[in-house]
Structures are given as C-alpha cells and as structure tokens.
Amino acid sequence: MRHILSFITVFALLFTSCTGPQGPPGFDGLQGPPGFDGETFIGSAFEIVIDFNADNNFEFFEPYGFEVFPSDVTLVYIEWDLDNGESIWRLLPQTVYFDNGSVLVYNFDFTQQDVRFFLDGTANFNTLDPVWTQSQAFRVVVLPADNVDGIDITDYNAVSNANNLETFDIR
C-alpha cells in the first residue's frame, strides 16, 4: 500500500510539473468607447440661493456655466436645516406635509444646458410663509454616471468626499 501511495505521489508531481507548448494567442478584446486619455474627472458643482414667487412662476432656470455631457448625472441638494451652524443637505425631491393636508415639494429637472428648480404639490404657493419660498439654498453637483455607482447619493457628504468636491461657485 505504501508503494502505491508513493507511486501516485511521484506520478502526480511529475504530471503537474510538466508544461506543454504555448497555444496560439487569443483575440484582442472589443474596443471601448473613447475616453479622456490621462485625465481624472472631478465633479463640477455650484451653490445657488433662490427666491420662489409668482413672478418667476415658482421656478428658476440656471445654466451650468460649464460643459455637461449626455452621460453626466445632475444631483441637487437643498439646505434643509442647520446643526450647530453646520448645514444639513438633503437630496431633492423633498416633500413638506402641512397640517391643513396640503403638500409642498421642492423638485428639479435638468438638461445638458441648465437645471430647473421648481415648487410642486397641492399647497397654494402664493400663501406660503416666506420661510418656504425665500432664500432657499441649493447645491448642484454634476458627475459622470460612472462616479455615482456604489455611492449613497442621498448623503451629500458621501458624494462630496467621493468626488473631491471641495469648493463651490456661489451664484
């Protein structure tokens, strides 16, 4: 029995240590879409303060001021509250429910040229307290879609840290 195990062991070592001739090379992979050679893209961002009123139909359009590609993603955050002087940012849309049953929604949409901020919902915008319509601060972040994968986009700090957003143009 010992001789059989020794024979199998020696045979296994010889069998695994032998190599044969190298086979033909494989085919090259498919060419991917053109990218930015040697460039690292860092997201673009700006901060804007808006007054919503009947004169602007409770909406506001803001051109980016920089190039936005078709594959880019625009995220908008509203300054929702302050905690010891530090801003708390929330991803839009955000909904406010009033005691009278009406609803106010802060929302946005975007194109490659601009971003639109607007109020929506069942509330009478003309009778809202100015705290809901005046001096509303927003942060707009434009990122390549690849940079959003795996990030909790509802957490402004996570998006900011992952995309090296350190400064904002104030508009």
Rank of each mutant, 00 (worst) to 15 (best):
D169V: 14
V10N: 07
L92E: 08
E59S: 14
V105I: 14
A158Q: 07
M1T: 14
S71T: 15
I48R: 03
D169H: 14
D109V: 04
G85K: 01
L119Q: 02
S160I: 06
D55R: 03
R90E: 15
D81H: 02
P34Y: 06
Y156Q: 10
F69S: 15
V148D: 08
V96K: 02
S135R: 12
V131N: 05
L104P: 02
Q112P: 00
D155A: 14
R116S: 13
A158W: 05
R2Y: 13
N124F: 06
L75R: 02
G43N: 06
V131A: 12
D51H: 04
F27L: 15
N56S: 11
V159K: 07
R116F: 05
V73F: 04
E86M: 11
F46H: 05
F46D: 08
T122L: 04
D55A: 12
I88H: 00
A12C: 03
I170K: 15
A123Q: 00
D109Y: 10
S135W: 03
F110R: 06
P34I: 04
Q31L: 13
D72Y: 05
G65A: 10
F125V: 01
S160E: 11
D155I: 11
L82G: 06
G38M: 02
P25T: 08
Q94R: 03
Y77T: 07
A137R: 07
D109N: 14
V115C: 01
S87I: 12
Q31C: 12
F7V: 12
L91P: 09
T16A: 09
G32T: 06
N107C: 01
F58K: 01
D51C: 03
D129R: 03
F108D: 11
N163V: 06
W80I: 06
G43M: 07
F61C: 09
L119M: 12
P33A: 10
G121A: 01
Q112R: 11
D169Q: 15
T127P: 10
G32V: 07
Y156E: 13
T95Q: 07
